[in-house]
Design a protein around this nucleic acid. Structure first.
Lengths: 225, 225
DNA sequence: GCGACGGTTCGGGCGGCGCCGAACCGTTCC
DNA sequence: GGAACGGTTCGGCGCCGCCCGAACCGTCGC
């Protein structure tokens, strides 16, 4: 039973925090990728990763000479998001121009742990609220119509006894407005990838809406993306 | 704009974490009280407090020779709760017997930041869900009936444009089940104190239901406490 | 005024943590 | 087999953070 201080300590280091934020894209990274990303030596990264895994924040999977690592679960991702959004409340500063092109792609559509973010994520969230699938008057909640839509459009049913909230809001880094996380957000993202409504581009978390996806989003939610 | 690591660093120390958890009772403590509570010298406590205040986690109020300090707001309290509940997922271990009497009072009814917790908090949450004032099927949400109840029984109306969720679940430390936080929880607790449905006992966060409160909870929610 | 008290500031000691380079291990590829 | 590569382990180094005691300041009570 770790203490609050020990748990916070896991994130209280520049390098470990950078790892966790990189892993918010929901994918598994190798140790070397993370080391380069954070600008530290492989040996340093290795020790940090061991510590995060021991602390239960990350899960690892060894394949050959590679060590793949990802966030341990939605709870861990939610905690990282909570810390990040508390740390940077509403930085209205525009992103630096040097990374404009990559940021452009990520600003349009990307994954955020296991759900969709960027302009796409916010537009979909707005559409679901506007169509009465999600109620946003007090926190967020899935309406009966939304539950039917989930089953009908995505083939998703909430597992009985699930502790995970069906929907949760997650502050969008680029749009500065909430998009949809929780089981609904995860199901939507997973379905979109599986049915090729979206496709990953580049090696980052950016995604692109395919023509098929454009049709699907239009049919299901009456949005043009 | 602090980084995630800097923010986490505020909580990554035994003493500062103890301060924050003590302040979860929602009241203002003096620097000396916190120093004794955490078992450090006043000089040490003073520096920690300055750091937490500078980091925006705590708010301070100077009165004469006293420095009163409290959690800066519901967001800060929610972050502390998130870290604490992630750190101690579900310790089923029974509390140690030495502190049984105090724990007994606190287990029955206490405050948790700005809302009610303990057996009382959980019973009230269950009652509000059972009576359809709060829907618990996907996350938590206040129903239209609940909104009317809030206005009628507590005289509370949600301020327009409020960012704070009307209701939020908060894992109860002693009951290991959720009770109600958010604006609803805060309004209920504030009203209960104002109308003397409950009274603080001792110097901790324990509260006691008054006879008047017993009647009120029975009339409003049909619960006997 | 004077003493008691709460709180702050400053200097110093100490331990821990994060970083690296070097050596090493297992896998993969030629 | 040998070389390249990803990852780990181990010393060692330097810094930062936590803690204390001592001195000091402002407030409160007598």
């Amino acid at each position: 039973m770790p203490s609050l201080a020990e748990t916070a300590g896991l994130f209280a280091d520049r390098t470990r925090a950078a790892f966790c934020q990189a892993l918010l894209d929901g994918r598994a990274w190798t140790a070397g990728e993370l080391a380069r990303y954070a600008g530290v030596r492989p040996s340093t990264a290795s020790e940090h990763l061991s510590r995060l895994v021991a602390g239960g924040v990350l899960a690892e999977e060894r394949q050959g000479r590679h060590r793949y690592v990802r966030l341990a679960g939605p709870e861990a991702a939610a905690l990282v998001e909570a810390l990040a959004s508390y740390a940077a409340p509403d930085t209205t500063a525009p992103p630096r121009l040097g990374a404009a092109t990559l940021l452009g792609a990520e600003a349009r559509a990307r994954t955020c742990y296991d759900h969709l973010a960027g302009r796409l994520g916010v537009v979909l969230a707005d559409a679901m609220i506007a169509r009465g699938l999600v109620a946003a008057d007090s926190g967020l909640a899935v309406t009966p119509a939304g539950r039917a839509w989930l089953a009908d459009a995505l083939g998703y049913e909430q597992p009985p006894g699930s502790r995970r909230p069906l929907v949760r809001d997650c502050l969008d880094r680029t749009e500065r407005r909430p998009h949809l996380a929780g089981a609904l957000g995860a199901a939507l993202c997973a379905t979109a990838l599986r049915r090729q409504w979206i496709r990953r581009v580049g090696s980052g978390r950016a995604v692109k809406v395919t023509p098929r996806g454009s049709d699907a989003f239009h049919d299901l939610l009456a949005v043009t993306v």
